[in-house]
Computed example of a mutant assay.
Amino acid sequence: MVPEHPKTLLIACGALAEETLAVLATGQWGHVEITCLPAKLHNRPALIPEAIRKKIHANRDQFDKILALYGDCGTGGKLDDVLREEGVERIAGAHCYEFFTGSSLFNSLADAEPATFYLTDFLARHFDRLIIEGLGIDRHPELLPLYFGNYEHLLYLSQIEDPELQEKAKAAAERLSLAYEYRFTGLTGLEDFLKLKAAG
């Protein structure tokens, strides 16, 4: 018999770890645990589906339910294929920008300003390491216009209102020579998914 609150594992992108822990700290989530895959997998999205499959297989016997906190994240539908095969549901959305804002709002934002580069709290916090160093711009500044020459705006989608992170995001926009915009999203997207799929 399945317990009232099935023991649940969240397999999350490392870029969502702090935000997910913040949500779990706010409710009755004692039956929920989280494990993360490295955020750097986003640089090689083809590796994400099988990495998640390995996590599922390694943990299936220990949990009643497994959920994935991942968008498609550039896997071209292959992540959904793996999750379908393994019987695991994921949060809706192509990427974290979409499930932080909600699909309707994100689509409106993207339609209004298609040449937009997005930051989350995680990306604002680690901008230099993930973007400047991760893309080799620190070593080869000539790459900057190749990566970002078609962007016009930087939109910081913030999950937690933090003036220090806002300053980091502004500095990132300046570094990329992009117009800066700020929008607070909160954690509602994650909260709603957990209430719907992990509450019982």
Rank of each mutant, 00 (worst) to 15 (best):
I56S: 11
Y97A: 13
T188L: 12
G186D: 03
E18Y: 10
F184L: 12
Y182H: 14
E113R: 10
L119F: 13
L119K: 02
N107Q: 15
S104W: 02
F99T: 13
I132P: 03
G186W: 10
K168L: 10
L24M: 09
P163I: 07
R175G: 00
G27F: 05
R53C: 08
A46P: 01
G14H: 04
I66E: 09
L135F: 15
K55Q: 15
D72L: 12
I56Q: 06
H5I: 08
G27R: 09
Q62T: 08
A199L: 12
H140L: 10
L194N: 11
H57L: 15
W29H: 07
L143A: 03
C13G: 12
A198I: 05
E133H: 12
R139S: 14
G136N: 04
K54F: 13
H95K: 02
L24N: 01
L37W: 08
P49K: 04
L196S: 14
L176Q: 05
L130Q: 11
P45K: 05
F127N: 05
E18S: 14
V82F: 09
T8I: 08
L155W: 06
A92I: 12
T185V: 11
N59W: 02
E161G: 00
T8M: 08
L37H: 08
D162I: 04
E98M: 13
F184D: 00
Q159H: 03
N43Y: 09
Q166P: 00
C96H: 04
P3W: 08
L154K: 02
A68R: 10
I137K: 01
L37I: 04
T188C: 00
A112Y: 12
E181S: 14
F148R: 08
A179Q: 13
I131E: 02
G102W: 10
F100G: 00
D61R: 14
M1T: 11
G14Q: 08
L130F: 15
E161F: 09
D138C: 06
L178K: 08
A112V: 02
K7I: 05
S103F: 04
A169E: 03
E33C: 10
A17D: 13
D128A: 09
A171V: 00
E18I: 03
A199Y: 14
A94Y: 13
D81I: 10
Y182M: 02
S158C: 09
Y70I: 12
T185C: 15
L176E: 04
K40F: 09
T116Q: 07
L157P: 00
R125E: 14
F127C: 02
G87A: 06
L196N: 11
F99Y: 15
A15R: 06
A110R: 14
L154Y: 03
K195T: 06
E113P: 00
V2Q: 07
T26R: 15
L41K: 10
E167R: 13
H42V: 05
G134R: 12
L143N: 01
L178A: 07
G93N: 02
F100A: 15
D138E: 09
H126V: 01
E161A: 12
Q62R: 14
K7D: 08
I160M: 07
E89T: 14
Q159L: 02
I48F: 12
E152A: 11
F63T: 04
G30Q: 11
S103L: 14
L37P: 09
L187A: 02
A169P: 01
L123F: 15
L187H: 04
A124F: 11
T20Y: 00
L178P: 09
P6W: 11
I52D: 02
F122C: 00
A58V: 04
L9T: 07
Y147F: 15
